[in-house]
Design a protein around this nucleic acid. Structure first.
Length: 428
DNA sequence: TGCAGATACCACGCGCGAAG
DNA sequence: CTTCGCGCGTGGTATCTGCA
């Protein structure tokens, strides 16, 4: 049903890993029909090939669909620079392709919606170039943003950093540009079976754990028998990483215990981690010592085989660190027409991971197609993990609000972290 | 000489293309 | 087919540079 304005070529940019996402789009096109148009499905790593030596686009597309468009939110990144040229985001609407942006996680704040700059320009009757530095333009429109640490990046200003209410107002303001126009240029549909419930579970360290947490990295490393990687005297960003590694490793037994208890109650359990040697490996290892089968979807290995072992119910637990492109939901319809195991899924974030986008994507692994999967966020109270958890949760809520998503699942968390902008009804 | 702003740096893990 | 190096995201401190 596409009217392509005379052209006949459609470009789809997909997220990584290309091996999975390109195949999925190709299957979908085969199922729905190609409408007689020419389609190109491309990964961000190949975008450069659509540009000539002068940096100008070599081809003209009538329609461009950018899937998981948040991958183009950082202006300085190469893939973003290629994407902006291919999409002709600096051209006036009549000279640019018709662009469809697809994402459930637009960004951590409006300054990251850079891939929508041309759309915002159009909505305000401005030339697209004026909105190219999106953060700057949004500040002109009164949004509480300020330049970030890294060049070209923006962040909430100091005032907004301290007020979730202000953040909520800001994302709502920008969202309404897109939903209150005629016709609206943004649509969003919540999962009809409701949002994934999420809760926070702070754990208190014992005296022994605190002592280990404050140990020098080199001592900790040899005591825990972690293979040496890189420097022992890390400062700055690296020091923060060391504390997260230590906290994550010290809590591994408690997480394993919690997971084992839920397996006994008949659940199939998802454990999301960020780090491999100090989190994924120890948690998986402890569970296996208790005779519980674990699918390891991280590092090397045959990830699809591991995934199938979980989905078939051979392994009751999966430990994974990839946030996208894997399906872990109950009763998934498999390629051979059979169904995945129907045991209820439950998820634990073994460690907080700063990114709200990654958190929302992770929760979507099993909470899909009518299947409910509730989540708990584990962290050690009073450690760097608590601050990381606070950031992750705040960003998760903003990310949901930015698409007008259902915030009903965040009541408990908001109370735990003193968030101030959720409706009062949520606190009853 | 002193201070503020810019730049460099650390660690980890993944996917990818190119080279061997 | 395997290996190597790059790009990317994520946090914060240390040091350099330029200006007054």
């Amino acid at each position: 049903a596409l009217k392509l304005g005379g052209g006949d070529t459609v470009l789809i940019t997909v997220d990584r890993p290309a091996q999975i996402t390109i195949a999925a789009w190709r299957d979908a096109l085969a199922a729905f029909g190609d409408g007689g148009y020419r389609w190109l499905i491309i990964s961000p790593d190949q975008l450069k090939k659509l540009l000539g030596r002068n940096g100008q686009p070599k081809y003209s597309f009538s329609v461009i669909i950018n899937d998981e468009a948040q991958q183009f939110r950082h202006l300085a990144a190469q893939r973003t620079q290629y994407q902006r040229r291919v999409n002709r985001l600096s051209a006036t609407p009549e000279k640019a392709p018709f662009v469809i942006t697809v994402t459930a996680t637009p960004g951590h704040h409006p300054g990251e919606y850079t891939y929508l700059s041309a759309l915002f320009a159009q909505l305000h009757d401005d030339p697209p170039g004026e909105w190219a530095d999106l953060g700057k333009k949004l500040v002109e429109h009164g949004l509480p943003l300020a330049p970030g640490w890294d060049k070209g990046k923006w962040d909430w200003n100091d005032q907004a950093k301290g007020s979730q209410r202000l953040q909520n107002q800001a994302v709502t303001h920008v969202r309404k540009w897109m939903t209150d126009c005629d016709p609206p240029v943004m649509v969003h549909r919540d999962a009809p079976w409701g949002p994934a419930p999420i809760d926070g579970l702070p754990l208190d360290f014992t005296a022994t754990q605190w002592a280990a947490y404050h140990q020098d990295w080199s001592e900790f490393r040899s005591a825990m028998k972690i293979a040496r990687q890189g420097n022992d005297t890390a400062r700055g960003r690296a020091a923060l990483m060391r504390f997260r590694q230590k906290a994550g490793m010290l809590r591994a037994p408690q997480t394993a215990e919690l997971v084992a208890a839920h397996v006994e109650r008949g659940y199939q359990v998802l454990v999301a981690v960020e780090l491999v040697t100090t989190a994924a490996d120890p948690v998986a290892g402890l569970l296996e010592e208790h005779g519980i089968g674990v699918s390891r979807i991280f590092g090397g290995g045959d990830l699809e085989t591991e995934r199938i072992r979980f989905q078939r119910g051979h392994n009751p637990v999966v430990v994974f660190n990839t946030a996208s492109a894997i399906n872990l939901q109950a009763s998934e319809l498999m390629v051979d027409g059979s169904r995945a195991s129907s045991a209820r899924r439950i998820g634990f974030f073994h460690q907080p991971r700063y990114s709200g986008i990654a958190a929302r994507q992770t929760m979507g692994r099993a909470h899909r197609d009518g299947q409910v999967c509730s989540w708990s966020l584990l962290f050690a109270a009073g450690t760097v993990e608590e601050q990381a958890a606070r950031i992750m949760i705040n960003r998760l809520m903003v990310t949901s609000a930015s698409v007008d998503g259902d915030l009903g699942a965040f009541g408990k968390l908001a109370r735990l972290f003193d968030a101030d902008w959720l409706p009062e009804s949520m606190f009853m």
